[in-house]
């Protein structure tokens, strides 16, 4: 009997990253304003592993960032901007209309 059972599908390591729902949760997204001021420890404070620092370049993977805002609190040079409204959001107002 046992040998007739189908092979059970198992999870591919790290595959959650492909189906991340984080982007749809986000109300605010982090934006790097001054990368030289970013605290290097901030990589370890991100719960989602969305931030990477390579020499002077700070990259934030917005596919997996949930927008918790810890990076903006823990480090200079990163600010949270509203995702859908506001000055530099997706549907941002023009600079002159602030």
């Amino acid at each position: 009997m046992a040998k007739e059972l189908p092979i059970v599908p198992t999870a591919v390591p790290g595959s959650s990253v492909e189906t991340s729902a984080a982007a749809s949760w986000r109300e605010y997204r982090p934006e790097v304003r001054e990368s030289q001021k970013v605290n290097r420890e901030v990589v370890l404070f991100c719960p989602d592993g969305a931030i990477s620092i390579e020499k002077e370049t700070v990259t934030i993977d917005l596919h997996i960032c949930k927008g918790c805002g810890i990076c903006a609190v823990e480090s200079d040079g990163i600010v949270m901007v509203p995702e859908y409204t506001g000055v530099s959001g997706v549907f941002g107002v023009k600079e002159g209309n602030k």
Binding site: G14, S15, S16, V17, E18, T19, S20, A21, A22, W25, R26, R40, E41, L44, F45, C46, P47, D48, G49, A50, S52, D61, I64, K66, G67, C68, G69, I70
Partner: peptide
């Protein structure tokens, strides 16, 4: 040495925890 830590993320990317989860931070570190 914080600069010599591996870049690879063995845990955490795409996790389904709440945003700002303390447990996920502990796991990643």
């Amino acid at each position: 040495n914080l600069d010599q830590l591996p870049k690879e993320e063995l845990f955490g990317q795409g996790n389904v925890g709440c945003k700002g989860c303390g447990g996920a931070i502990a796991g990643r570190q």
